[in-house]
Amino acid sequence: MPEAAAIRRHFLASLQAAEAPHRPYRHWLLKQALPLESAAAIVDLPVRPAEIDDTQGKRDSHNESRVFFAGDLMADHAVCRDMAACFQAPETIAALQQATGADLEGCYLRIEYCQDKGGFWLEPHTDIGAKRFTMLVYLSTAADGPNWGTDIYDSEKRRVGRAPAGFDQGLIFVPGNDTWHGFEPRDIKGVRRSIIVNYVIPEWRARHELAYPDQPVQAA
């Protein structure tokens, strides 16, 4: 399986080749965001999807069931350690800042592993505030997976697009007061898998969610 440096080189090549639409806000669409071996290893992690009746349109409505590349999961699984090392690396931080304009210096890495099932939905929201950067990498293997991408809205909260969500495709945006996105209810047969990579401000309270709670990121 690729180690952190190989994951980083692969990801940075994908970032460099990403499409970057400007409407309704600047965002980046990635293809083959991760080495396929790494993406498959994430899918194979021994983590069962949580049984949630209703998300109430928010991920934080069931915080106790959320899974992060941190603590025991990082200690026990090489792919989690290597993914975290990739996105903590100064070279990655420098490339992300240059490509997107995000101010990441002094922030902390947070990687969530999501496994959404039927009934999942998210209301339109912006991620503004404590998150300085958001990336989703879609890892669904189901036939309908490509239709399970993030919905993108304009300033009036009208859906204007949907991120392509084929296996190993990704979406990046820099949270702002116009970055409306969500997940409209749709039929999910199987599991909608993804990772969400955030860089969050030092004041982030849930330190157990962070890959390196005592190590802020720095650019090369």
Rank of each mutant, 00 (worst) to 15 (best):
G161H: 07
V191S: 01
L122K: 14
Y138G: 04
H77F: 03
I201P: 01
D54F: 00
A6S: 12
E156M: 09
L30F: 01
P124W: 05
F11P: 07
K131F: 06
D72T: 09
N63P: 11
S155W: 15
A95S: 15
E91T: 13
A206Y: 12
R23F: 12
D60A: 04
D144S: 11
T150L: 07
W28Q: 10
G118M: 06
L15I: 06
A13G: 13
A95P: 11
Q218R: 14
A102I: 02
P2I: 03
Y108K: 07
A220H: 10
G71Y: 02
C80D: 04
V79P: 00
A50Q: 05
A206R: 13
T150Y: 09
Q215H: 14
P202G: 02
G71L: 05
M83F: 10
T92V: 09
F11K: 09
E209C: 07
D44P: 07
P49E: 02
W180F: 08
A220V: 11
S194W: 03
A5Q: 15
R9N: 14
L96G: 06
P90Q: 11
P21D: 08
G149P: 01
L29P: 09
A219E: 04
P24W: 02
M1N: 04
A89I: 03
Y199R: 04
R23C: 02
E19G: 06
